[in-house]
C-alpha cells in the first residue's frame, strides 16, 4: 500500500515538475541563444528581475525533485546489488542537495549584494 502510494506520488511529482521545467528551461535557452547577455551588469540585472528571480527560485527545487525521481528510477532498473544502489542514491542525494543550495546561495547573494 505505502509502496504503491509512494510510486504514485513520484509519478505525479515527475510530471508536474516536467511541465514547469519545460516552460522555464525553454524560455531560458531561447533567451541565452537569441539575446545572450553582453556583460556582467546586463546578466545580473536580467537575473535580478523579480519575475526571472522567482522563476529561478522555483526552478531549483523543481529540477532537483525531477532529477531525483528520474535517476532513482534508472538506478533501480540497472543497479541490482543493494549496497551499490544505496551508495549511488546517497551520492546522488548529496550532489543534488549540494548543487541546489549552491544555486540558491548565488541567487540570494545577488539579491542582497
Amino acid at each position: 500500500m505505502s509502496r504503491r502510494a509512494s510510486g504514485l506520488k513520484a509519478w505525479v511529482v515527475q510530471r508536474t515538475t516536467a511541465v514547469y521545467l519545460a516552460g522555464f528551461s525553454l524560455y531560458l535557452a531561447l533567451h541565452l541563444l537569441l539575446a545572450p547577455p553582453v556583460d556582467y551588469l546586463a546578466w545580473r540585472d536580467w537575473v535580478a528581475r523579480p519575475g526571472v528571480s522567482v522563476a529561478f527560485l522555483l526552478f531549483v527545487p523543481a529540477l532537483l525533485a525531477h532529477a531525483w525521481v528520474g535517476i532513482r528510477d534508472v538506478l533501480i532498473d540497472y543497479v541490482k546489488p543493494i549496497g551499490m544502489r544505496v551508495f549511488l542514491l546517497a551520492l546522488l542525494a548529496f550532489a543534488l542537495v549540494g548543487s541546489g543550495l549552491w544555486a540558491l546561495q548565488a541567487l540570494f547573494l545577488l539579491r542582497t549584494g
Partner: peptide, 10 residues
C-alpha cells in the same frame, strides 16, 4: 551551478 555562481560573482 558552478558556472551560474561564477558568472554572477562579478
Amino acid at each position: 551551478v558552478y558556472l551560474f555562481g561564477l558568472s554572477l560573482s562579478g
